[in-house]
Computed example of a mutant assay.
Amino acid sequence: MRASETWQPDVRAVMDASPFLGRAAVDMTDPEFIAAARARGPLPESVEGVEITETTLPGEDGHAVPVRVYRPTTPAPGRPAYVLFHGGGWSFGSLDTEHPRCVELTRRCGAVGVSVDFRMAPDVPAETMLADCWAAVRWTAERDDVDAARVVVTGSSAGGALALSMAQIARDRGAVPPALQLAFYPNTDDRVHPSRLSPAFPVIDGQQVAQVVANVRQGRADTPAYVFPNRTTDLSGLAPAFLLVAGNDPLRDEALAYARRLVAADVPVELHLLPGIPHAFDGIAPESQSTRTAYDLMCAAFDRAVRPR
């Protein structure tokens, strides 16, 4: 598929007006770029219906993991919840990266949200990053205002990969499984899939995907367990999945491959391929119809997954 032939007009108009998307691709292994791309602003003000605070939770090695908590302003016990892992190639991004999506989930779904500032590659091994994320899942499930059986793991891009990884870890550790693993345009693999080879896909390209994979692998000969979800051999018994894939995205084919493997493993899967949109489209064009469609699908799937049985 040629990306240039299948664009959603409102998304394309935003991209054409951007002074950044047409510039030369950055090196995602460059320490200066990584540092700049991790920067974040002050705590956002609470918005109507959503209280926003920040705190830390205890990590598995004693590290205090920073988190941003989103709570409905109307108190209620046993709410559904989500644990969100931000995108950024496992190497950058911050609590600001997915802020609009957190507000959307909390306001529309009445859910307590925990957005996680996990330690990232290449500063730490993949196992440390996964441990921070798993500590956040456990901490969220143990909250007094949360129903542990109605916790969703979610994220986009590499954060979507981490959500898929958490579902695998929950299964293998015998923990309460997430009610749903909900991923937007996720990384799933360190191997090259056909869509990574398209030169027409904007925002990120296949070379940059390889760079962030290199940040995670850090020259290791082995493949770290869980961090690339499509490397896990057995996908049976995982929590239900919702995958939203962007049509004009180098990660498209690996996400579709993972969805097919979930189906083959008898895991309930809801898959949406939105044509004519690039990687990270909701951040690029938050007011577009494509973003509204994606958020409507997300919230509907969330509500179905956490509905009391």
Results as ranks from 00 to 15, higher is better:
residue 94 S to D: 09
residue 24 A to N: 02
residue 152 V to H: 10
residue 47 V to Y: 02
residue 107 R to C: 01
residue 121 A to C: 07
residue 176 V to W: 02
residue 227 V to P: 07
residue 102 C to A: 13
residue 155 G to N: 12
residue 21 L to C: 02
residue 180 L to I: 05
residue 156 S to F: 11
residue 301 A to V: 08
residue 160 G to S: 12
residue 292 R to V: 07
residue 127 E to M: 01
residue 197 L to P: 02
residue 302 F to D: 05
residue 193 H to Q: 06
residue 110 G to F: 07
residue 72 P to L: 14
residue 244 L to R: 05
residue 245 V to G: 04
residue 63 H to D: 02
residue 7 W to I: 06
residue 279 H to F: 08
residue 200 A to N: 01
residue 111 A to D: 11
residue 37 A to T: 10
residue 293 T to N: 02
residue 293 T to K: 07
residue 175 A to H: 08
residue 31 P to M: 01
residue 305 A to Q: 08
residue 233 T to S: 14
residue 139 W to K: 00
residue 298 M to G: 00
residue 103 V to R: 01
residue 155 G to T: 06
residue 273 L to R: 15
residue 135 A to N: 02
residue 47 V to T: 15
residue 54 E to T: 14
residue 144 D to H: 12
residue 143 R to P: 09
residue 307 R to S: 08
residue 141 A to M: 15
residue 245 V to W: 05
residue 76 A to L: 08
residue 9 P to Q: 05
residue 262 L to Q: 10
residue 289 Q to T: 05
residue 151 V to D: 10
residue 96 D to G: 10
residue 89 G to P: 08
residue 80 P to Q: 03
residue 233 T to K: 14
residue 139 W to I: 00
residue 224 P to A: 04
residue 196 R to T: 10
residue 231 R to I: 01
residue 259 A to G: 13
residue 204 I to P: 04
residue 308 P to E: 10
residue 201 F to E: 07
residue 217 R to P: 05
residue 277 I to Y: 04
residue 79 R to F: 03
residue 225 A to V: 14
residue 34 I to R: 09
residue 261 R to H: 05
residue 236 S to Y: 04
residue 239 A to M: 11
residue 159 G to D: 03
residue 265 A to G: 14
residue 306 V to L: 03
residue 88 G to R: 01
residue 238 L to K: 09
residue 194 P to D: 06
residue 134 W to N: 06
residue 122 P to M: 00
residue 248 N to R: 03
residue 305 A to E: 07
residue 235 L to E: 05
residue 72 P to A: 10
residue 109 C to R: 04
residue 165 S to R: 09
residue 295 Y to N: 10
residue 59 G to I: 01
residue 47 V to R: 15
residue 95 L to S: 13
residue 208 Q to L: 06
residue 216 V to R: 04
residue 231 R to Y: 00
residue 141 A to K: 14
residue 18 S to A: 11
residue 307 R to V: 00
residue 136 A to P: 06
residue 161 A to H: 14
residue 167 A to Y: 12
residue 128 T to M: 00
residue 235 L to T: 03
residue 257 A to S: 14
residue 123 D to A: 13
residue 225 A to Q: 14
residue 229 P to Y: 11
residue 215 N to A: 08
residue 266 D to V: 06
residue 24 A to W: 00
residue 223 T to Q: 09
residue 112 V to S: 12
residue 5 E to N: 06
residue 200 A to W: 01
residue 75 P to Y: 13
